[in-house]
Amino acid sequence: MQIFVKTLTGKTITLEVEPSDTIENVKAKIQDKEGIPPDQQRLIFAGKQLEDGRTLSDYNIQKDSTLHLVLR
């Protein structure tokens, strides 16, 4: 499925993911596309910070959802 990741600069990254993918996995995909190390990434969805060990389906993230990427 496709999800979107919006950065603070207003750029939107499109990712191909599975509901069973972990947040860690998603961060690795963002690193592949953007070169941002996962340890600098914070992903936010519906006002919640997403934890590495959980999956997209744990957070009820569905296709065409938009996550927000904050760098630390």
Rank of each mutant, 00 (worst) to 15 (best):
M1A: 02
M1I: 12
M1G: 07
Q2E: 11
I3H: 00
I3W: 00
I3N: 00
I3K: 00
F4L: 11
F4T: 05
F4A: 12
V5A: 03
V5E: 00
V5K: 00
V5R: 00
K6I: 14
K6S: 13
K6Y: 14
T7I: 03
L8G: 05
L8Q: 13
L8P: 10
L8A: 15
L8M: 07
T9F: 02
T9E: 14
G10A: 03
G10K: 03
G10D: 14
G10Y: 04
G10F: 07
K11P: 12
K11W: 09
K11L: 13
T12K: 01
T12N: 09
T12R: 03
I13G: 02
I13T: 08
I13N: 07
I13H: 11
T14D: 14
T14H: 07
T14V: 07
T14P: 08
L15T: 02
L15N: 00
L15I: 14
L15R: 00
E16S: 05
E16Q: 11
E16A: 10
E16M: 08
E16R: 08
E16T: 09
E16D: 05
V17H: 13
V17A: 10
E18H: 12
E18M: 11
E18I: 12
E18D: 07
P19F: 06
P19D: 10
P19Y: 03
P19N: 06
P19S: 07
S20A: 15
D21G: 11
D21Q: 08
D21F: 15
D21R: 03
T22A: 04
T22R: 14
T22Q: 04
T22V: 09
T22Y: 09
T22N: 03
I23T: 15
I23W: 02
I23H: 02
I23Y: 02
I23L: 08
I23V: 15
I23K: 01
I23E: 01
E24V: 08
E24H: 06
E24A: 10
E24Q: 03
N25W: 13
N25M: 04
N25E: 14
V26L: 11
V26W: 00
K27N: 04
K27R: 09
K27P: 00
K27T: 15
A28L: 02
A28N: 11
A28Q: 15
A28E: 07
A28S: 11
A28I: 02
A28P: 01
A28K: 11
K29S: 08
K29R: 06
K29T: 07
K29Q: 06
I30P: 00
I30S: 01
I30D: 00
I30Y: 02
Q31Y: 08
Q31S: 07
D32W: 13
D32G: 06
K33F: 15
K33H: 11
K33L: 09
K33V: 11
E34K: 01
E34S: 04
E34A: 05
E34T: 05
E34N: 03
E34W: 06
E34M: 04
G35L: 06
G35W: 04
G35R: 03
G35E: 15
I36K: 12
I36N: 07
I36D: 06
I36L: 05
P37D: 03
P37H: 05
P38M: 15
P38D: 12
P38Q: 12
P38H: 06
P38Y: 09
D39Y: 05
D39N: 04
Q40W: 14
Q41A: 03
Q41F: 10
Q41L: 06
Q41S: 07
R42H: 14
R42V: 12
R42F: 14
L43K: 00
L43Q: 00
L43T: 01
I44P: 00
I44K: 14
F45D: 07
F45G: 04
A46V: 12
G47A: 02
G47M: 14
G47L: 04
G47R: 10
K48R: 05
K48S: 13
K48G: 14
K48E: 14
Q49K: 12
Q49H: 13
Q49L: 05
Q49S: 09
Q49M: 07
Q49W: 05
Q49G: 13
Q49F: 03
L50K: 00
L50R: 00
L50I: 09
L50G: 01
E51S: 05
E51W: 02
E51V: 02
E51I: 02
E51N: 05
D52K: 02
D52R: 02
D52L: 03
G53W: 07
G53H: 12
G53Q: 11
R54Q: 15
R54A: 12
R54D: 08
T55K: 13
T55Q: 09
L56M: 11
L56V: 12
S57L: 06
S57T: 06
D58L: 08
D58A: 07
D58V: 07
D58P: 01
D58K: 04
D58N: 06
Y59P: 00
N60E: 11
N60T: 13
N60P: 04
N60Q: 15
N60Y: 08
I61K: 00
I61R: 00
I61Y: 01
I61A: 06
Q62I: 13
Q62D: 04
Q62F: 07
K63P: 09
D64E: 04
D64M: 06
D64H: 07
S65L: 06
S65Y: 11
S65I: 01
S65P: 02
S65G: 11
S65A: 15
T66N: 03
T66P: 15
L67M: 05
L67F: 06
L67G: 01
H68T: 13
H68Q: 09
H68G: 09
L69V: 06
L69M: 05
L69P: 00
L69H: 02
V70R: 13
V70I: 04
V70E: 15
V70L: 09
V70S: 15
V70Y: 09
V70K: 09
L71I: 09
L71T: 11
L71R: 08
R72K: 08
R72L: 15
R72V: 06
